[in-house]
Structure formats: C-alpha cells, structure tokens
C-alpha cells in the first residue's frame, strides 16, 4: 500500500530530477559544466520508485548516470549542481563531477565511470551487512550494458554464494551507448540472467513509478528477511543521447516518440488527479516549488568558489606521509 503522501513525494522527486537535469543540459550548453554528462531524463521512475522503498541507512550504489540516484537518495540539489560546476561546495569538492557523485552521509556511494565496475562493490557493501548481522541491505543500479561485463557475473555469483542482502536493479534502456541490446547481449531479457545464479529475477515497467515501487517493496522485504540477492529489470528509456555529446542517430524517431508517450511524470500526475490525491492547483504549486529549487541550485553553484589550487593533493590518501607530493 503506497500512501498518498508517498505518491506526492515520488511525483515531486521525479519532477525535481527532471527539471534539474534540464538545467544541467542548459548549463552544459553554456559551458558551465564540462566533461562527460549523462542525463537520466526519461528514467526517473526507476531511481525514485526503487530508492523510496529503502530505509535511510541502506546502501545505494550506481553508475556514471547517477544524477537521479544522488537526488532520489536525498542528496542536496545545491551540492549536486555545484559539483557539476566543479566548485568547492560540490558534493565531492569538485573532484568527481557528473560521473562520480557521492553522498556518503546518505549512504550513496556513487558514481563509477567503468561499466560494471560498481557491481562487486555492491556485493561487498552487502558482505559488510551480512558480516555484521545487521538488517541493512544494498541496492545496486546499473544499465543493460553492464550485464555483459565479466565483473557483473562475478558479483552475482558472490552474492548468491554468500547469500548477501543486495538487490541488483538493471535499468534496461535498450542501448549500451549507441549499440542496441540485441547487438550486445545473447539474452535480451536481462531478468532471466538471474536464473544463471539461482536468484529470482523480476521484470517491471520502469516508466511507471508506482509499479517500480510496489515491486521493490516486495523484494526489499524479502531480501531484508534474509532471502539472499535478487535481480530486478526495469524496462525504461532515456530520452537524451548517451551523454551530452551524443546526437542519438542510432535510434528511430518513431521509437523515441513511442517512449515519450509513456513518460512517467505526466503518467503519475494523471493518476494522482484521477485518484483525487492532488488537484491541478497542487501540481502547479509543486512545479513552482521545484523551479525555485532549480533556480537556487544554479545560483548557488555559479556563486560558489572553485576549489583552491592547494586542494589538488588533498584526499589522494586519508593519512599523509612526508614523502607524498606536497605533503
């Protein structure tokens, strides 16, 4: 049972991610943001639905397409935008950027740019939960492309072998950069790969936040109770290119149009209005509130100082030795 309050919170969270990322695209165009920037627009229902099913101290780990997860985990929009601007006030002091967001205070461990690289780390976080015997669990997000990497399979094998409390959430957006899943994966139904490791695999409509949430509520309960790992495949679509530099010529316009009609945000708005959870006026108020947060985030980032040059050698290690450069 998802409460009306929870539904409104999910709506607001999806809207916030969408609007903030639209600002990111704008700021990227103005060259305020550099490097590789991978937008999450279109996939918001997955991070929001799945993460909202967790406790505050469960661990979450993702990939370089991490904006949505950082924000859904409770990350500060100001620190988010400042990190993308490369400012000292950013979540990672301007050292990580778009691909390496992290927010340890909210148990969000980023943020890795290597496809599949986060997979064994997710199982390792779960190993710590199991080792301590606490009831925390781990949620690991990755794309369909990661499921063809070697460490993906190692991580699932370890997780099942040691009965670790981890939920692997595959955001299957059907493209690994520009190569379709049919051209890269022998088994295109990712959830079926779970059976190779003796764990349950589920398929959900990743464009429907309520469906994602309901499925995750069920799996979270099971995994927290000690069932061992599970795999959820959320079928979804990114509206933009792989990164800001990708014009997306490999996809048919008709396909894009089809998925845009399934947009999770208006979809939930329609449901909320139909269920009389909100009215049009409340939706407008939410939109205005989110716009204010976006304005403030951009203003905060733009007015924040760059990291001092003296920070260059900070954080290579946590304990400095006299032989370290500029120790």
């Amino acid at each position: 049972m998802i409460t009306p309050t929870a539904k409104i919170a999910m709506y607001r969270q999806m809207l916030l991610i969408r609007r903030l990322e639209e600002r990111v695209a704008e700021m990227y165009g103005e060259q305020q943001i550099g490097g590789f920037t991978h937008l999450y627009i279109g996939q918001e229902a997955v991070a929001v639905g799945a993460i909202s099913a967790l406790n505050h101290d469960d661990y979450v780990i993702g990939t370089y397409r991490d904006h949505g997860h950082f924000l859904a985990r409770g990350g500060d929009p100001n620190k988010f935008m400042a990190e993308l601007f490369g400012r000292d006030t950013g979540s990672c002091r301007g050292k990580g950027g778009s691909m390496h967001l992290a927010d340890v205070e909210h148990y969000f461990y980023g943020g890795t740019g290597i496809v599949g690289g986060s997979m064994p780390i997710a199982s390792g976080l779960a190993l710590a939960c199991s080792y301590r015997g606490d009831d925390r669990i781990v949620m690991s997000f990755f794309g369909d492309g990661a499921t063809n990497q070697g460490v993906w399979h190692e991580a699932l094998n370890f997780a099942k072998l040691w009965n670790l409390p981890v939920i692997f959430v595959c955001e299957n957006n059907f493209y690994g950069i520009g190569t379709g899943v049919r051209l890269s994966s022998a088994l295109t139904e990712v959830h079926k790969k779970a059976s190779g490791y003796g764990m349950p695999g589920y398929e959900v409509n990743g464009m429907d936040v309520l469906e994602v949430r309901r499925q995750c509520d069920e799996v979270v309960k099971m995994v927290r109770a000690g069932s061992g790992p599970a795999l959820i495949e959320a079928r979804c679509y990114r509206y933009q290119g792989h990164s800001m530099t990708d014009p997306g010529r490999y996809r048919a316009r008709a396909e894009e149009e089809l998925w845009r009609k399934r947009d999770p945000i208006p979809r939930l708005a329609k449901t909320l209005v139909a269920e009389r959870v909100v009215d049009e006026e409340r939706l407008r108020a939410l939109e205005q509130e989110v716009e204010r947060i976006c304005d403030e985030a951009v203003e905060f980032a733009a007015s924040s100082p760059e990291p001092p040059l003296s920070a260059l050698y900070d954080h290579v290690f946590s304990e400095r030795h006299p032989s370290d450069p500029h120790a």
């Binding site: 661990y59 780990i61 461990y109 690289g117 997979m119 064994p120 780390i121 997710a122 199982s123 390792g124 976080l125 779960a126 190993l127 710590a128 939960c129 080792y131 070697g150 460490v151 190692e154 991580a155 094998n157 370890f158």
Partner: peptide, 16 residues
C-alpha cells in the same frame, strides 16, 4: 575471481 575479490573487499571497506 580476482576482480570480484578486490571489488567485494572495497565495498566491505566502504562500509567500515
């Protein structure tokens, strides 16, 4: 599974 061994150790270290 060496990559897995190191990666799991890393995750466990992140968790303390």
């Amino acid at each position: 599974a060496e990559a897995g061994i190191v990666g799991l150790a890393l995750g466990a270290a992140l968790a303390g």
